[in-house]
């Protein structure tokens, strides 16, 4: 064990408070859960959450298994990063794919993003949670991402079918989190609830947390589609008539399935440059998430069906 006097990194009063709050939430969830699990999506928020979990339980290893819902359409660099991280940190990583969906050949080129997301993400998540009988499910959701998330509790109750009932949320007074569930019910717990995208990047910079290289600007082959830039990550990408990949200097603000994650043109190839870009941004990060635009209130609907 290192015995240097670890004084707080200089990241101002807000990050220090947010970090202590997140650690408190992680410990509360683990202390009261029978079968906790942490959803690991490989993105920057997951990286921060994992880092906080390592801090919260130090010197013990992270006492919670990580669960990745793999749609098989993630960026190749994400999967490489996931496997490297799990190996280096000795994590209990569990990967689940909806096998029926895979067998039925569900993909977003033929079935549309709404159906694809339902089968390969929402249903897959429910399958994995049922199989693991997890009662506390940590995730990296933030309230500033989207307006229905802005309404959600830190400890958010899900019924037996994993559904969120936004009209009857439990009161959440002070930081006294209600952790009681009945058999079959579960809690989605979001330690990063009060963080913003800027906080996440500032924290990544201060703590030197590794993230997937796709967040940093680089020349990459993309096609312009429906107003977004889509990376041609592998040979499965179906080009529409008239589409030709061109190399542009781009980066991603948010990562998901590559055909659904739009890149932005950018020169930001360091965390500092990203921060400068994020603070001056005039579009939200989820703008690059094509599935959020499947209709008014689409995020809320997906959450009610069991999406994180």
């Amino acid at each position: 064990m290192v015995t240097a006097d670890a004084t707080r990194p200089a990241y101002g009063p807000i990050l220090g408070t947010l970090e202590s709050e997140a650690i408190e939430i992680l410990r509360e969830g683990v202390a009261t859960a029978e079968r906790p699990v942490m959803l690991y999506s490989i993105g920057k928020d997951s990286s921060v959450l994992l880092h906080l979990a390592r801090k919260a339980f130090w010197p013990a290893p992270v006492p919670v298994p990580l669960l990745h819902i793999d749609t098989t359409w993630k960026f190749r660099e994400m999967i490489a990063f996931r496997d490297r991280t799990a190996a280096e940190l000795g994590l209990d990583l569990r990967v689940h794919t909806n096998k029926e969906g895979l067998r039925a050949g569900v993909n977003l080129f033929d079935h549309g993003s709404a159906h694809y997301t339902d089968v390969m993400k929402t249903q897959a998540l429910r399958q994995a949670l049922d199989a693991g009988r997890y009662d506390v499910v940590f995730g990296g959701a933030r309230r500033d991402e989207e307006r229905s998330r802005a309404k959600e509790r830190v400890f958010s109750l899900r019924n037996r079918a994993h559904q969120w009932e936004p009209r009857t949320q439990r009161p959440e007074i002070w930081n006294l989190y209600n952790t009681r569930v009945r058999p079959g019910e579960s809690l989605r717990v979001s330690p990063l609830s009060n963080w913003t995208e800027g906080d996440v990047w500032r924290y990544i910079a201060a703590e030197e947390i590794p993230v997937v290289p796709l967040y940093f600007a680089k020349e990459r082959p993309v096609v312009e589609r429906d107003g977004g830039l889509i990376l041609v990550d592998d040979g499965r990408m179906r080009l529409r008539p008239g589409e030709t990949p061109v190399v542009r200097r781009v980066r991603f603000r948010t990562l998901g399935c590559y055909p659904l994650s739009a890149a932005v043109e950018s020169d930001a190839d360091t965390v500092e440059a990203i921060l400068a870009e994020t603070i001056g941004a005039d579009r939200s990060e989820r703008h690059g998430r094509l599935i959020d635009h499947d209709g008014e209130a689409s995020m809320e609907r997906k959450k009610r069906e069991g999406y994180f």
């Binding site: 064990m1 290192v2 015995t3 240097a4 006097d5 670890a6 004084t7 220090g16 408070t17 970090e19 202590s20 709050e21 650690i23 408190e24 410990r27 390592r54 801090k55 919260a56 130090w58 010197p59």
Partner: peptide
């Protein structure tokens, strides 16, 4: 007082 990868000589209200 144990924190991530080390120790501290003082901690105060609000610290985990």
């Amino acid at each position: 007082i144990v924190v991530w990868q080390g120790e501290r000589q003082r901690a105060q209200r609000g610290d985990s």
